Computed example of a mutant assay.
Amino acid sequence: MTDNIAPALAPGIIDREAALRYQTASLQRVSRTFALTIPRLPAGLQETVGNGYLLCRIADTIEDDPRLDWEAKARWQKVFLAVLRRETPAEEFASGFAREMAAEMPEGEHDLIANTPSVVSLTHSFNSVQQSALIRCVEIMGEGMAEFQRRASRDGLRDQADMDHYCYVVAGVVGEMLTTLFVEEEPRMLAGGADLPGLAVSFGQGLQMTNILKDLWTDWGRGVLWLPQDRLRAHGLAPGQLHPGMSHPGFTALLTEMIALAAQHLRNALTFTLQIPAEQTGMRDFCLWAIAMAVLTLRRIAENPSFCSADEVKISRDTVRNVVLLSRLLHRFDPLLDLTFRVAVKRLPQGQIC
């Protein structure tokens, strides 16, 4: 499973080109979406954002392991953070976690864990601002995911505020990291006076809520529900009543509410994107493609609220190609982007509130 391990280096020596080649190859294996969007960024951002994604993917791999209990996951999150802080050798984490990692985890993730030293060597080659942004993101994400894993069950999250916090630790904090990296690359983003970190956190929540809804029954199958209990109760539902393919007025109303809230966050995502100068088309595409795919996924869910699996609401590759084409036609024109978004969300429940 580890045929693609980067060559070992003597301590203190970084083969940066080899690390970059591995990063590019690994992105292709562990994320189709980011492998598509990251190459649209300026060269420097490709390196830092790609590396940030792989660091988050390592943290996600720890969280996703089906055989580890929450205590073991929390312990490995701390070890990985110690690696980033140069307190523990990366090789120690890679070999130790590999011994405990479930065999059924995806091959690309086994390979990524084995190559943690290469990934982290690149992290440590960035400037202090970039390193701080990446390490802060992994710290908040790792600690937050460990806490939510501790109490994950089919009972759901406590309330909407709890769901908001979950979305923050798994996605909103990534938005904060990207804001730091984007502003360093393009300081003119600050010229409009917008609350970029706040918009970025909302951006992340819109994407994560879309994923929660799309993967609702996949998560349910592994014994986890990320919907808030207070909103279930408000619609006359209890977690134990839920099941794939259910057709219930209260459940449809709950989905409608969650879709509308996600759409509001995606409206903020567009506002964030429009703070990027129009000539930075690659940076805009990076954001626009994510927004468009989320909106289209929400539309699929709204059209089929009694879906049974993520495959039923997943957008097609042809749709992705159309998103790419439309983005490249419109990415310089703010009024047209705003109009296109408004037209797209009109087909969502309560889309007019956006």
Rank of each mutant, 00 (worst) to 15 (best):
R299N: 00
N268F: 00
W289Q: 04
S247L: 13
T24V: 07
M105H: 09
V201Y: 03
G193I: 08
S247F: 09
P66A: 07
L227N: 01
V173H: 01
G108E: 07
G236A: 06
D162A: 15
V295N: 01
A278K: 13
Q205Y: 04
R267D: 03
Q205N: 07
S327T: 09
L55I: 13
A59G: 04
N51H: 13
A18Y: 05
L255M: 14
T273D: 04
A18N: 15
Y166D: 03
N4A: 12
V119S: 01
L196A: 10
V313K: 03
M163A: 11
L255F: 01
R99T: 12
S31A: 14
L68F: 06
A292F: 04
D60I: 12
L288I: 05
E107A: 13
R86E: 14
A191Q: 14
E279A: 15
A269P: 00
A278I: 12
V224T: 12
W220I: 06
T2F: 15
Q46Y: 12
Q208L: 11
S247T: 12
E100R: 11
K346Y: 10
P106C: 10
E87A: 08
A94M: 06
P335D: 06
T273G: 04
L237E: 04
K73L: 04
A234K: 06
G172L: 03
P11N: 13
L325H: 09
L157E: 09
I212R: 00
R16G: 15
M1V: 15
G204M: 03
G221W: 10
